[in-house]
Design a protein around this nucleic acid. Structure first.
Lengths: 121, 121
DNA sequence: TTTTATACATCTAGTTCTTATGTATAAGAT
DNA sequence: ATCTTATACATAAGAACTAGATGTATAAAA
């Protein structure tokens, strides 16, 4: 799965690409496994990206021209580093802004009280 | 679609059930069309539930025992009112709490700076 | 009389995610 | 020495969900 432990998985659908883009926008480049580890670390284990979701998403973002890749051999292991393209960088900003706005909107629902709802009824 | 205008649709997948449960937890009962209108009103048009997503979701929640229905005839029109069951009520609280927590976690990613990321690298 | 609003609902196609599986290297534990 | 865990990539089948279209029907407004 793409989120495990603490959250119902459904909650997070659709946020994966935004998370990837944001992570890459704060770093020169990262490779897949590194992304999973950093996200886990930053969120204290609450969000775990899974390979089954992560790699297809990375490939799609690359196919869409938002990411470029560069393979680097470290020891005997090959790492595939992803970094934002120019388009990817502006797209990252857009998607993050969109997510922020959406969370604000969600709050208006989450903080709803019977009184507030009655007003609108 | 289930969200239109302002938000990329992907972002919101998985929040529909939580939204429905929260809306119903602040009201005795509501019917489908009313839900779409109230959510649109409260979010100032930013979130629009669509029938194609709403009705299947309502039916699933009912099948899962979280909602009960009661048909009422108003004029010549039949409305199907949904209300929370006992299980649905506690589930609503759980899902809302989960969403709040998740939004906090998302913030740690969204508010990430190169410095903070560097710390963790 | 035509359009818009109300009110239910379903269906196809598309996308996404989960879970499982597969390959391979390397480090640490037994 | 050998087994397990961590690192590192990836795919594939099936499940789940949503968008967008379509369908039925009443009623109000233009």
């Amino acid at each position: 799965m793409y989120i495990c432990l603490m959250y119902s998985k459904e909650l997070l659908k659709g946020t994966l690409k935004t998370i990837i883009l944001k992570m890459l926008s704060e770093s020169d480049s990262m490779y897949g496994y590194q992304l999973t580890q950093k996200v886990k670390e930053i969120t204290e284990g609450k969000i775990n990206l899974t390979e089954g979701a992560l790699y297809p998403a990375l490939h799609k973002l690359e196919a869409d021209g938002l990411l470029t890749t560069e393979k680097k051999t470290v020891g005997n292991r090959v790492r595939k580093y992803y970094s934002l393209t120019k388009t990817g960088d502006s797209d990252a900003k857009e998607k993050v802004a969109e997510l922020k706005e959406f969370m604000e909107t969600l709050k208006t629902i989450i903080n709803l009280t019977p009184q507030k709802l009655a007003w609108s009824i």
